[in-house]
Design a protein around this nucleic acid. Sequence first.
DNA 1: CGATCGTTTGACGGTGCTCAATCACCGTGG
DNA 2: CCACGGTGATTGAGCACCGTCAAACGATCG
Lengths: 293, 293
Amino acid sequence: MTNIPCCTTHATSQEAWRLRRNDIAPLPEPVTLGELVQTLGGDIREVRKPAEAAPVSLWRIRQGATLLHEGCAAQSVFVLRSGSMKRIRTLEDGYEQVLSFAQPGELLGFDALHSGRQPAAVVALEDSTVCVLPLNDHLLARHDCLALDRALQVALSRQLVRTAGTTEMMAALASDVRLARFLLWMSQRMDEAGRSPRRLFLRMCRRDIASLLGVAHETVSRSFTLLAELGLVKVENREVEILDLDGLHRRALNTRRAGDEAPGAAQKAASDWSAALQPDWFAPVRQVAAAAA
Amino acid sequence: MTNIPCCTTHATSQEAWRLRRNDIAPLPEPVTLGELVQTLGGDIREVRKPAEAAPVSLWRIRQGATLLHEGCAAQSVFVLRSGSMKRIRTLEDGYEQVLSFAQPGELLGFDALHSGRQPAAVVALEDSTVCVLPLNDHLLARHDCLALDRALQVALSRQLVRTAGTTEMMAALASDVRLARFLLWMSQRMDEAGRSPRRLFLRMCRRDIASLLGVAHETVSRSFTLLAELGLVKVENREVEILDLDGLHRRALNTRRAGDEAPGAAQKAASDWSAALQPDWFAPVRQVAAAAA
DNA sequence: CGATCGTTTGACGGTGCTCAATCACCGTGG
DNA sequence: CCACGGTGATTGAGCACCGTCAAACGATCG
């Protein structure tokens, strides 16, 4: 049970060493199904009593360890509970294409359900913990617990919204606009997690950001300094403080290359972008959801 | 019933005219639940007898009509049955950001489940038909029919894989590489649909492609001619014939700007890219996976 | 046949990629 | 204690690619 199949560390020269360090190991005390639903962002009050206490196993992933290997058989779905991860695909020439960064509450490995194999690798950016949902029990558990089922569906929906955000990040033409959108995206995540949206600590290196944004990593560096010179952010290595959230919104809005914005439309522009980044819409009246319950 | 709320045509000056033309209208004869599962890519044999014949309403969407409006309340989930659509988000400056193109079998509107509102608009690129799953019945139907439930989960998983493909398309640095990846992506879709993967008819305009790829639309034009000059494709307006699928794979692989490839590693490179585009993996059975069994 | 939209091609200027050097940081070993 | 190599981040120089503007051409439809 200590050695988790298909979920060992990344295949480097230090693999043996890392295995000895137990880069991936189950934690002794499992979490409850109620907590899992909560981690997913669902409502714990919807969980019925007997199911609420059902045990869900929990794993600890060390920084740099690979939770899922590209091409491996699908066996489990994971829910990120704490920490952060990156989804990557390694191209033939060795280039690591970053597909997304995962924050707590996100589903990992669900995309393997389609083909039965992992389409991307998942690597921990820091020490993290994940809940484990073996695929065998997956469908059964969902039918046993309506709340879990709902939470999973909503989580999947959120996933789709977030990938759309990724697309919008990369679609910007100017590189500093892409970075601005990325920072706002991160800021939004911090806000959702209940932390300050102005203080970011980027767990990923410049190269990973560059890969996600589709630019050279030197350009990411230059864009950071540009945004800093504009007084929008304060950058100190991986610590980023957002000084002017509104101004950052304005800059993130620029579709075309021309750098200077018309200050008139800027206000409304900001609201548009926060709408894109903020899954919790201004008025999240879930009529349909309420009707279903 | 003729006027579907929140699903009218796009808000142009011709809206009234289009409404008169019944751009969106339910078809008189509904389809069966068994067919719906089949459309989703599921196995119809898994559908139990009584449920198989359950009626699912079908809508016809005219080219240019808007099936889902950005910001509207979530009411139904749709399954694209025939035709093609584009998902777009309109930014403040009026720029239409294309998020993805949808092919038959894809789920539309599911991303609204999270916030209760549509995060993006969905516009038909050609005359299309969609199956309608009202959210009220959604959960119930899923529990009634296990096959539908499975098919929906797999479809969602496929959705996630496809958005990753979008990310990879946009992540390429050179514009012609992006276009090559896009064409391969389209080619893959044609193949999945059982049509020739070498003959494409692009339903979207250059501007839409450019928006998705994050380049100027003139650049898309130039990249088309470049790929044509290389003898990889034959372009005639929106009809594209892929002359050298292997060569296109090779060009799509280029991570860096430098245009000319080393022909030695090209062969293996091609296999990598088809792996990215083709969810049905060939056989990269990792050792780790083997150790698991 | 004219109007409108989509596509292509040209010219030019600027952004960003490449290559390269420098510096900071860190764990290691002398 | 400091040299040492390794990694990551920043900055600079040069040039190619691509965005912008513009015009011409083609397609479609009334």
